[in-house]
Amino acid sequence: MRSRIAFWNILKKDIKNYYLKPPNISWGIIFPLSWTLMQLIRSPGENVLKLLPGLMAMSVLFGTTSMLAVTITFERSGRSFERLLLAPISINVLVLAKIAGTVLFGIFNAFVPIIFASFFKDLRGVNFGIILPTVFMIAVSSALMGLLIAVSAKQVFEAQTFSNFFRFPMLFLCGLFVPISDLPVFLRPISYLLPLTYGADILKGAVTGVNTLSPTLSFGMLILFSVVLFLISRHNINRKWIL
């Protein structure tokens, strides 16, 4: 009961204080929109549906990692985060509450390219029953990566630097716009160590009907990555934030 009230109020506070602020809403819309436009202009003849999975995955990745890493580092530097650490709630509840807002923000980000694409293409063939849980799992694993970055960063600029260090290589390594089979052989194993590879592959299947990997395996890998990232984050919080 106590944990439920705390969870809900941490989520509500984060949504109100961070995610619903005009700069973040506009960033959440403008960033995926401009990438979508850029891709369409770059390849005018290309099928919008081919670009959509990559754009969705990228929007979730950038939305979640940047927001969580920055908001937590911001709260830590102002020491308001200590209130959460000192509250009689478990670290599990705290982590889940902090990532919940980011996950919702990531899902919102993912649907911007879909809405935009719907003006150019008939999306009735898209399997939204698969897209929704996949976007959710990509958002969870990306948010937990953001949390890992937040645990290591002391300042907001450090969090942003670390985030970019992970995110930009992932654009190329996870098969969002360049198929993994087109990557140099030595880079391919790295692709399969990144959760976004599996999420992007499920999205491709749901949008175009063509998967490289089994969707069941990919879902399993996303769950596995999320659990491992959750455990590492919890361990790091215990080790680094409770000195």
Binding site: A6, K13, N17, G78, R83, A87, P88
Partner: peptide, 25 residues
């Protein structure tokens, strides 16, 4: 704490209510 570490974005009433929620009230 040795610093006043409430949330700048929230007003006085919201800050107190949020802290109370952390204790399950």
């Amino acid at each position: 704490a040795d610093e006043s570490n409430l949330y700048n974005e929230m007003d006085g009433f919201e800050n107190l209510c949020f802290c109370a929620a952390l204790y399950g009230m």
